[in-house]
């Protein structure tokens, strides 16, 4: 996951000089591209085979490391029950609500402070101090204030997601092309119109990067909160399974979180492609 993120962060922002926006070198990729899905599938197949064989051959103790067939069977069986989907629903609810709150707050504050350089300079040091505080360090505080309520989960998710998006929005707002800005002004676009038609589209690629990072981190924290605080959801289910000694079930839940992460990432990427179809990172080679 981390490698994906580094690459995306670099690729998502528009290049510093907007005159000649570099386009992705499709030709360079074309030789390797057709093999990628195949190689990916082979990789997963290899991993599954290893996971199946290692416990069966006694390379790892089967008691703590059940073969994948058993884990997937447990998962499939659980997936037909209502409590499974309830837990998934709780986790997704905390994730979505927290991400939504963080997104709205980051956009509002980012645009407000982006338009007020003095205020921005005034708050920069505070932001730089608050931003690196790991969200999990707030768990005791969350428990103290909200107990096992969903608000505990929300506090953690919002805190972690907010900074990721907020920083991106600040960069985006500051990246408005002076020529685009002058064009808008010379054609009589007022302040609000410029925000809507120039600043907002300029910020979008940054915002989407922040959203993609925050979507992944938000899921992690949603589950972490349930795991440690014990509010209902997947994290809570993992703890329960562990305490009941249901090892295969623990693995089944872990696999479920992985699948959830992949689905969320695919969803955000699809959204990104839709929203940024005009942007260099998405549009590819222009048909000129």
């Amino acid at each position: 996951m981390s490698t994906t993120h580094t690459r995306d962060t670099v690729a998502a922002g528009p290049p510093p000089d907007g005159t000649r926006r570099p386009r992705p070198l499709n030709s360079a990729f074309s030789r390797t591209a057709p093999n990628r899905p195949l190689l990916g599938a082979l990789g997963i197949a290899g991993l599954l085979a290893l996971w199946e064989l290692a416990p069966r051959l006694g390379a790892v103790p089967e008691r703590y490391f059940p073969p994948v067939s058993e884990v997937l069977a447990t998962l499939a069986e659980r997936a037909t029950t209502a409590p499974f989907w309830e837990a998934v629903g709780h986790t997704l609810y905390g994730w979505a609500l927290g991400l939504g709150i963080a997104l709205a707050a980051a956009i509002l504050l980012g645009f407000a402070l982006g338009a007020a350089p003095r205020l921005r300079a005034f708050t920069t040091s505070t932001v730089d101090f608050l931003r690196p505080i790991p969200s999990v360090a707030l768990i005791p505080l969350a428990v103290l204030v909200y107990g096992t309520d969903i608000r505990s989960t929300l506090l953690l998710v919002v805190y972690a997601c907010f900074w990721l998006i907020y920083i991106q929005v600040l960069y985006g707002v500051a990246d408005v092309d002076p020529v685009a800005e002058q064009t808008a002004r010379s054609y009589g676009l007022g302040r609000l119109a410029r925000i809507r038609y120039v600043v907002w589209p300029t910020t979008l690629p940054y915002l989407m990067t922040g959203l993609r990072l925050a979507a992944a981190v938000g899921l992690i924290l949603s589950i972490t909160a349930q795991l440690i605080i014990g509010s209902p959801g997947i994290g809570d289910q993992i703890t329960n399974a562990q305490q009941g000694g249901a090892v295969a079930l623990v693995y089944a839940w872990i696999v479920a979180t992985g699948i959830l992460g992949v689905v969320i990432n695919i969803g955000v990427r699809a959204l990104e492609r839709r929203v940024l179809r005009w942007h260099t990172s998405v549009r590819g080679e222009a048909a000129a």
Binding site: G18, T19, D177, R185, S186, Y187, G188, Y197
Partner: peptide
């Protein structure tokens, strides 16, 4: 301020036109 009776064509068309429109 930029008057309504004036239009400007900039050299940098790639930056003056909005790519998102």
């Amino acid at each position: 301020a930029p008057p309504p009776g004036m239009a400007v064509v900039f050299q940098e068309y790639g930056r003056s036109l909005f790519a998102w429109m």
